[in-house]
């Protein structure tokens, strides 16, 4: 156990040192991610200038909804960068390095690399949006709400981590899964910036039961905001984010363990 903690520390220090070797570049690249991701917010802002509200959600409530996506992604990418880049690892054969070591393969992949620029860019934007909106959405911040928020964030991180793990595992069979990730993760994520109630039933079904982004931001935001459109969904959904996160992650992990047996090393 001590060895594992020691190894985690060494990996994390080494990764951070490598990413921040050129400090000015690190700051600029993190800012670039921040600016790129902010464009979506700017679109929403200008849209809301015309309509005042979107299905009952005002600009601050939408920013609060958005903040959860960015914050959870910012945290998730610290741990799951290796899974994001897993396809390249398999194609280049560098995944063999992890297979040949006497430690958990997933443990190594998680701690051996972290995209700190994405983490700071996304996480920083999430925190900024939270700070702008949290005081203006009528949430009474007490210990219970804060704890709920904390568990919702953990659940949201696990849900996205599970999706990354599942798609990464598909690389063992398909070698190339870039388009699947684009379709299932990034495209669906674009919908998640809005309250799911504005979409038709098909998209709602997709976001609740297939790629459950609704549990990353919509239902946690609803728990705190209690908007009218929540009446369309069972109230239990407000509490399910951590359970969905853990459940999805365990399923994805089981799929990962099962699939590793079929991993076929690439050529030299």
């Amino acid at each position: 156990m001590n060895d594992t903690l020691h190894l985690m520390t060494v990996y994390s220090k080494t990764t951070a040192r490598a990413w921040f070797q050129y400090r000015v570049d690190a700051v600029l690249r993190s800012l670039a991610v921040f600016a790129r991701e902010s464009t979506g917010i700017i679109v929403i802002y200008f849209t809301l200038l015309k309509f005042n509200s979107l299905n009952g959600w005002n600009i601050y409530e939408l920013l609060f909804l958005y903040s959860l996506i960015f914050l959870t992604y910012g945290i998730m990418i610290i741990f799951f960068t290796g899974l994001r880049d897993f396809g390249n690892m398999v194609r280049e054969g560098s995944f063999d390095r992890f297979v040949l070591r006497p430690r958990g393969i997933l443990f190594q992949i998680i701690f051996v690399n972290s995209d700190w620029f994405a983490a700071i860019g996304h996480g920083g934007l999430g925190i900024t949006l939270f700070l702008i909106s949290a005081g203006k959405v009528g949430v009474h911040w007490n210990i219970y709400n804060a704890l709920y928020y904390l568990f919702a964030v953990i659940g949201g991180v696990l849900i996205q981590g599970a999706v990354f793990l599942f798609i990464a595992t598909l690389n063992i069979y398909l070698i190339e899964t870039g388009s699947i990730k684009e379709l299932l993760y990034w495209n669906v994520r674009k919908f998640a910036g809005y309250p799911i109630s504005i979409f038709n039933k098909g998209v709602q079904f997709l976001m609740i039961y297939i790629m459950p982004y609704a549990f990353v931001n919509y239902f946690p935001a609803q728990f705190l905001l209690r908007k009218e459109d929540m009446s369309q969904y069972p109230e239990i959904y407000l509490y399910l984010t951590p359970i969905v996160g853990v459940g999805m992650y365990l399923l994805a992990y089981a799929f990962w363990l099962y699939s590793l047996k079929y991993y076929k090393s690439s050529g030299n």
């Binding site: 080494t14 490598a18 054969g93 560098s94 063999d96 390095r97 040949l100 051996v112 030299n268």
Partner: peptide, 10 residues
């Protein structure tokens, strides 16, 4: 295995 990077290059 020649050609496999078993050490972290960074």
């Amino acid at each position: 295995i020649v050609g496999k990077n078993l050490l972290d290059k960074e």
